[in-house]
Amino acid sequence: MRQPARIGSLRRFGSRRERTRPHLWLALVLGLAGFLVVVAIFSARTERHNAEPRRARLISLIQNRRGTVDELDGEVRGLRRRVDQAQASSSRLDANQRQQAQQTSDLSALAGTKALAGPGLVVQLSDSIRQPATPQEAGAFRIHDADIQLVVNDLFAAGAEAVSVNGNRLVATSAIRAAGATIVVNFRPLNTPYEVHAIGARLEDFNKSEIAKRFGRWEDLYGLGFKVGRRSKVEVPAFTGRVDVGVATPGGTS
């Protein structure tokens, strides 16, 4: 109770001049307050405005670049095909050159720069459509890079000669890895469902593999998508990345 009495007395005994000056201050401070509130509202709004187009721009940029990469991939395939055709159709080849062209063709099939087709298996993997009970379990309901690695390894073990994952041919320098939550093959980000094409793989051998058995269990437990199909004609596209070896040189102890 002491303070109100003191302030009351101050007010009572204060001269007229002393009371008008704080009024000015009060007006100033309140004016500042109103100014601040409006400025804060404006700045928050402009910040939101700025953030939204940036995200949209990034998304369109990513889609743009992916489109460019796809176009360039197609171009690489087309140009390689033309090189092959030119080498094969050249009528002025002597026996030596013809042999060399044949050798190049065989090597490019092995190296992965040539689209191949033949009987084999198509393995489809997809994330679960079920909702995990807890966030900690979420990992079990998704396909990981290691899953695809194991499937690819066992396809090779089952006799595969050429393998591609979602149209990305696996070659000697290929990597199947994860970048955050995305699986990346040959530096191309992939989305579920994942389709592994394997020319030459035998169904019985693959079904006997550890990963096939495990996926059979995970299908029931977690609802992961897992389908293996035998096809009379499986297509594996050509590898479109860089194939030359730049840093490494032949040597070392063998």
């Binding site: 309140l30 307050a33 109103g34 404006f42």
Partner: peptide, 9 residues
């Protein structure tokens, strides 16, 4: 003055 401040802003 509060209103004036807001209007100025």
């Amino acid at each position: 003055s509060l209103v004036i401040g807001a209007v100025v802003a």
